[in-house]
Amino acid sequence: MSDRQALVIGASRGLGLVLAGELARRGWRVVATTRQSGGRLRADADASNGQLTVESLEMTSPGEVTALRERLTGTRFDLVLVNAAIDRGDLPIAQVPTGMFTEVMITNALSPLRVLEAFRELVTPGGTVAVMSSEQGSISLNTEDGYELYKASKAALNQLMRSYATRHAGDGQTKLLIDPGHNQTQLGGPDAPLLPEESIPAVADVLEAQAGAPGLQFLDRHGKTVAW
Protein backbone atom coordinates (compact mmCIF):
# COMPACT_ATOMS: atom_id res chain seq x y z
CA MET A 1 0.00 0.00 0.00
CA SER A 2 3.07 2.28 -0.19
CA ASP A 3 1.74 3.90 -3.37
CA ARG A 4 -0.95 5.79 -1.42
CA GLN A 5 -0.38 9.54 -1.35
CA ALA A 6 -1.82 12.17 0.97
CA LEU A 7 -1.82 15.95 1.11
CA VAL A 8 -2.18 17.32 4.65
CA ILE A 9 -2.83 21.07 4.85
CA GLY A 10 -1.72 22.62 8.14
CA ALA A 11 0.86 20.27 9.63
CA SER A 12 3.38 22.45 11.42
CA ARG A 13 2.16 21.39 14.85
CA GLY A 14 -0.62 19.65 16.77
CA LEU A 15 -3.04 17.34 15.03
CA GLY A 16 -1.76 17.98 11.52
CA LEU A 17 1.85 17.29 12.49
CA VAL A 18 0.97 14.03 14.20
CA LEU A 19 -1.33 12.96 11.37
CA ALA A 20 1.32 13.55 8.71
CA GLY A 21 3.75 11.41 10.70
CA GLU A 22 1.18 8.71 11.37
CA LEU A 23 0.27 8.36 7.70
CA ALA A 24 3.95 8.25 6.72
CA ARG A 25 4.54 5.47 9.26
CA ARG A 26 1.67 3.56 7.68
CA GLY A 27 3.39 3.66 4.32
CA TRP A 28 1.66 6.67 2.78
CA ARG A 29 3.71 9.18 0.85
CA VAL A 30 2.72 12.46 2.46
CA VAL A 31 2.99 16.05 1.31
CA ALA A 32 2.46 18.27 4.36
CA THR A 33 2.17 22.05 4.40
CA THR A 34 3.38 24.64 6.86
CA ARG A 35 3.50 28.42 6.96
CA GLN A 36 7.00 28.46 8.48
CA SER A 37 10.28 26.84 7.53
CA GLY A 38 12.12 24.48 9.82
CA GLY A 39 10.60 23.10 13.00
CA ARG A 40 9.40 19.63 13.91
CA LEU A 41 7.75 18.96 10.55
CA ARG A 42 10.99 19.58 8.67
CA ALA A 43 12.88 17.35 11.11
CA ASP A 44 10.30 14.59 10.65
CA ALA A 45 10.57 14.93 6.88
CA ASP A 46 14.36 14.74 6.97
CA ALA A 47 14.13 11.50 8.97
CA SER A 48 11.38 9.90 6.84
CA ASN A 49 13.43 8.46 3.95
CA GLY A 50 11.30 10.36 1.48
CA GLN A 51 7.91 9.31 2.86
CA LEU A 52 7.19 12.85 4.05
CA THR A 53 7.86 16.05 2.12
CA VAL A 54 7.14 19.63 3.12
CA GLU A 55 5.56 22.46 1.13
CA SER A 56 5.07 26.08 2.18
CA LEU A 57 1.50 27.39 2.25
CA GLU A 58 -0.45 30.21 3.84
CA MET A 59 -3.89 28.67 3.38
CA THR A 60 -5.75 31.98 3.57
CA SER A 61 -3.85 33.33 0.55
CA PRO A 62 -5.58 32.39 -2.74
CA GLY A 63 -2.33 33.17 -4.55
CA GLU A 64 -0.36 30.71 -2.43
CA VAL A 65 -3.04 28.04 -2.86
CA THR A 66 -2.86 28.49 -6.63
CA ALA A 67 0.94 28.35 -6.58
CA LEU A 68 0.95 25.12 -4.58
CA ARG A 69 -1.64 23.63 -6.93
CA GLU A 70 0.64 24.43 -9.85
CA ARG A 71 3.68 22.93 -8.11
CA LEU A 72 1.79 19.71 -7.47
CA THR A 73 0.27 19.38 -10.94
CA GLY A 74 0.87 15.81 -12.07
CA THR A 75 0.68 14.40 -8.54
CA ARG A 76 -2.35 12.31 -7.67
CA PHE A 77 -3.58 12.04 -4.09
CA ASP A 78 -5.68 9.35 -2.45
CA LEU A 79 -6.39 11.76 0.40
CA VAL A 80 -6.53 15.53 0.70
CA LEU A 81 -7.15 16.66 4.28
CA VAL A 82 -7.37 20.23 5.57
CA ASN A 83 -6.46 20.56 9.23
CA ALA A 84 -5.59 24.24 9.70
CA ALA A 85 -7.80 26.31 12.04
CA ILE A 86 -7.53 29.12 14.59
CA ASP A 87 -9.29 30.19 17.78
CA ARG A 88 -9.37 33.74 19.16
CA GLY A 89 -10.69 33.14 22.63
CA ASP A 90 -13.94 32.96 24.54
CA LEU A 91 -15.84 36.19 23.89
CA PRO A 92 -19.62 36.50 23.73
CA ILE A 93 -20.46 37.10 20.09
CA ALA A 94 -21.60 40.70 20.69
CA GLN A 95 -18.10 41.52 21.97
CA VAL A 96 -16.25 39.99 19.01
CA PRO A 97 -14.58 42.69 16.87
CA THR A 98 -15.49 42.60 13.19
CA GLY A 99 -11.89 41.97 12.18
CA MET A 100 -11.63 38.99 14.50
CA PHE A 101 -14.89 37.53 13.19
CA THR A 102 -13.68 37.89 9.63
CA GLU A 103 -10.27 36.37 10.39
CA VAL A 104 -11.72 33.28 12.07
CA MET A 105 -14.37 32.70 9.43
CA ILE A 106 -11.90 33.07 6.57
CA THR A 107 -9.44 30.68 8.20
CA ASN A 108 -11.81 28.06 9.57
CA ALA A 109 -14.62 28.02 7.01
CA LEU A 110 -13.83 29.74 3.72
CA SER A 111 -10.19 28.76 3.19
CA PRO A 112 -10.60 24.99 3.70
CA LEU A 113 -13.24 24.90 0.96
CA ARG A 114 -11.08 26.98 -1.34
CA VAL A 115 -8.33 24.40 -0.86
CA LEU A 116 -10.62 21.47 -1.59
CA GLU A 117 -11.90 23.15 -4.74
CA ALA A 118 -8.33 23.86 -5.87
CA PHE A 119 -7.08 20.31 -5.34
CA ARG A 120 -10.12 18.11 -6.00
CA GLU A 121 -9.02 17.32 -9.55
CA LEU A 122 -5.75 15.91 -8.18
CA VAL A 123 -7.68 13.37 -6.07
CA THR A 124 -7.73 9.86 -7.50
CA PRO A 125 -11.03 8.22 -8.50
CA GLY A 126 -12.49 6.88 -5.27
CA GLY A 127 -10.15 9.06 -3.21
CA THR A 128 -11.04 11.10 -0.15
CA VAL A 129 -11.37 14.81 0.58
CA ALA A 130 -11.60 15.56 4.29
CA VAL A 131 -11.66 18.46 6.71
CA MET A 132 -10.85 18.43 10.41
CA SER A 133 -14.03 19.72 12.02
CA SER A 134 -15.21 19.50 15.62
CA GLU A 135 -18.17 18.51 17.76
CA GLN A 136 -18.16 22.23 18.56
CA GLY A 137 -19.61 22.74 15.08
CA SER A 138 -22.69 20.65 15.85
CA ILE A 139 -25.76 22.84 16.28
CA SER A 140 -27.77 20.16 18.07
CA LEU A 141 -24.93 19.46 20.54
CA ASN A 142 -24.34 23.13 21.37
CA THR A 143 -25.77 22.99 24.88
CA GLU A 144 -22.95 24.62 26.87
CA ASP A 145 -21.85 28.25 26.99
CA GLY A 146 -18.64 29.50 25.49
CA TYR A 147 -16.46 29.84 22.41
CA GLU A 148 -19.29 31.19 20.31
CA LEU A 149 -17.15 32.39 17.41
CA TYR A 150 -15.18 29.16 17.12
CA LYS A 151 -18.40 27.13 17.24
CA ALA A 152 -19.96 29.33 14.57
CA SER A 153 -16.92 28.94 12.33
CA LYS A 154 -17.02 25.15 12.56
CA ALA A 155 -20.79 25.11 11.94
CA ALA A 156 -20.15 27.28 8.87
CA LEU A 157 -17.41 24.88 7.77
CA ASN A 158 -19.80 21.94 8.09
CA GLN A 159 -22.49 23.73 6.09
CA LEU A 160 -20.06 24.73 3.34
CA MET A 161 -18.81 21.14 3.18
CA ARG A 162 -22.42 20.02 2.81
CA SER A 163 -22.81 22.41 -0.12
CA TYR A 164 -19.54 21.16 -1.62
CA ALA A 165 -20.73 17.56 -1.34
CA THR A 166 -24.05 18.43 -2.97
CA ARG A 167 -22.36 20.25 -5.83
CA HIS A 168 -19.90 17.41 -6.44
CA ALA A 169 -22.22 14.53 -5.60
CA GLY A 170 -21.36 12.60 -8.74
CA ASP A 171 -17.56 12.75 -8.60
CA GLY A 172 -17.11 9.41 -6.81
CA GLN A 173 -14.96 10.90 -4.05
CA THR A 174 -15.40 10.17 -0.36
CA LYS A 175 -16.13 13.32 1.64
CA LEU A 176 -15.52 13.49 5.38
CA LEU A 177 -15.79 15.91 8.26
CA ILE A 178 -13.73 14.54 11.16
CA ASP A 179 -14.17 15.36 14.85
CA PRO A 180 -10.86 14.32 16.46
CA GLY A 181 -12.01 15.03 20.01
CA HIS A 182 -10.69 17.64 22.44
CA ASN A 183 -6.91 17.43 22.23
CA GLN A 184 -4.00 19.07 24.02
CA THR A 185 -2.87 21.37 21.23
CA GLN A 186 -2.25 25.10 21.00
CA LEU A 187 -5.90 25.43 20.01
CA GLY A 188 -7.32 22.85 22.42
CA GLY A 189 -5.35 24.01 25.46
CA PRO A 190 -3.26 22.15 28.04
CA ASP A 191 -6.23 20.81 30.01
CA ALA A 192 -7.82 18.88 27.16
CA PRO A 193 -8.41 15.20 27.95
CA LEU A 194 -6.68 13.78 24.84
CA LEU A 195 -3.19 13.81 23.39
CA PRO A 196 -2.82 13.94 19.61
CA GLU A 197 -0.66 10.84 19.82
CA GLU A 198 -3.69 9.06 21.31
CA SER A 199 -6.42 10.36 19.03
CA ILE A 200 -4.72 10.64 15.65
CA PRO A 201 -4.09 6.90 15.09
CA ALA A 202 -7.84 6.43 15.51
CA VAL A 203 -8.49 9.28 13.05
CA ALA A 204 -6.15 7.62 10.56
CA ASP A 205 -8.05 4.36 11.02
CA VAL A 206 -11.29 6.17 10.12
CA LEU A 207 -9.76 7.82 7.06
CA GLU A 208 -8.50 4.47 5.79
CA ALA A 209 -11.67 2.57 6.62
CA GLN A 210 -13.95 5.10 4.90
CA ALA A 211 -12.00 5.22 1.63
CA GLY A 212 -14.46 4.66 -1.20
CA ALA A 213 -17.58 5.31 0.91
CA PRO A 214 -20.16 7.43 -0.93
CA GLY A 215 -21.53 10.79 0.12
CA LEU A 216 -20.59 13.11 2.98
CA GLN A 217 -20.20 11.90 6.56
CA PHE A 218 -19.51 13.77 9.82
CA LEU A 219 -17.64 11.25 11.97
CA ASP A 220 -15.73 11.20 15.24
CA ARG A 221 -12.38 9.49 15.79
CA HIS A 222 -14.18 6.21 16.48
CA GLY A 223 -16.00 6.31 13.15
CA LYS A 224 -19.35 7.15 14.76
CA THR A 225 -21.67 9.75 13.25
CA VAL A 226 -21.67 13.17 14.91
CA ALA A 227 -25.02 14.95 15.07
CA TRP A 228 -25.31 17.97 12.80
Rank of each mutant, 00 (worst) to 15 (best):
T53C: 01
A152F: 06
L23C: 06
R76Y: 09
L216T: 01
A202F: 03
L219C: 02
Y147M: 11
T102K: 13
A94R: 15
K224M: 04
P193D: 09
V18L: 07
G39C: 10
V104Q: 15
G14I: 00
A204G: 08
S61R: 02
L141R: 00
M59V: 11
R35I: 11
K224L: 06
Y147Q: 06
A152Y: 11
K175Q: 02
D179Q: 06
I93K: 00
S48G: 01
Q36F: 09
V31M: 10
P112Q: 07
E198T: 11
L116A: 08
D3W: 13
A204K: 01
L149G: 02
R29E: 02
M1G: 13
F101G: 12
V206E: 00
F101D: 12
G21S: 00
E197R: 13
G10S: 05
L110P: 03
T73Q: 14
F77L: 07
L113N: 02
A165Y: 05
V206I: 13
P97L: 02
E197G: 14
I106F: 07
D171Q: 07
L17Q: 01
N142F: 07
I200D: 03
A43N: 11
G63L: 13
Q5H: 12
T166R: 13
D90N: 15
P190W: 01
N108A: 00
I86P: 09
K224T: 01
L195A: 04
L149Q: 08
A11Y: 05
Q136C: 08
L23E: 02
N142S: 13
I86H: 01
V129H: 01
Q5I: 13
V203F: 05
D171P: 07
P196G: 09
L72W: 04
G181Y: 00
A209I: 03
L160M: 15
L177V: 03
R88V: 11
S12T: 06
I200L: 03
W28K: 12
L91W: 00
N183H: 07
N108K: 10
T60C: 10
A118T: 13
V115E: 09
L219I: 10
N142V: 05
Y147F: 11
V206Y: 06
R25E: 15
P97H: 06
